[in-house]
Amino acid sequence: MERKLVVSSSPHLKSPDDIQSIMVDVLVALFPVALMAVFLFGYRALITMIIAMVVAMATEAIILRKGNFFGDGSAAVTGLLLAMTLPPAPPWWVVAIGSVVAIAIGKQIYGGLGNNIFNPALVGRAVLVVSWGGHIAGNVWLKPVPFGFTADMVTQASPLAAYNASLGDLFLGTVPGSLGETSALALIIGAIWLFYRGHIDWRIPGGFIGVVFILGLISGGFSMGLYHILAGGVLLGALFMATDMVTSPVTATGKIIFGVGCGVVTMVIRLFGSLPEGVTFGILLMNGLTPLIDNLTLPKKFGEVKKSNA
């Protein structure tokens, strides 16, 4: 028998999905958001995103000593997500340091993809906020000018701090804000793609957005509930950040608890804290609780509770 047969343990079929394809799907999902950001905030938004992605990928390639620049794509995703949380045009070095921190300290120090406790992009953002708050959270917002690729832009406060935007503007994204958070429309389009591809579960965004809406409703009525969902980073956070696979619970119940927790912390910071936005810290805090949540919500095994009619 000259033919060599491969022997391996079953199953002998593998799903076509792999990590790289998931990461590419996330990038595809972020594409409408990125497009909207460039449309609203001009070429500077594009530069910010490119710096963040390239530096993130370079950092990962250097740390892993890999020739393959794109790798499994996770560094590109982290870089782009980081850019999405930043104002349209921070100094280039702020973006670059954020990317380095996100990959080196947020991810690789823990042992690389899969082992990190906190969402790397948010770690990068958190370090930037604490270190150079003036470039990230002060009066750095640009007034969006559709097609305003070269126009000079005006700085003004973000709508969450000022409570002055209409719901329609918030939905389309024609308000000042971080690159990826202004346009609810683009975020929802991207998220639909991820849902369709089965990479995110309704539970985390559902819990997150639901709680934000309910607490917003309690604090100021129906339109305030909607306002809290659409303004600021809730949609970006709920759909793209909190759903980060590595740092969120794996159990179904755990996902709901996680989402609700993110929503509660976010709203507590928004309503009672002095910072206008709480999404970053809400998600980071719940990231830290993820292993605990997982262990407290081990699912019931099939058939574990005996049915009364059996």
């Binding site: 792999d18 993809l113 082992n115 696979m245 969120s248 794996v250 159990t251």
Partner: peptide, 14 residues
Amino acid sequence: YPIAPCIKCGKCIE
């Protein structure tokens, strides 16, 4: 296939 670390996507649980 090279074995990558678990990214805790939860697909196996689903």
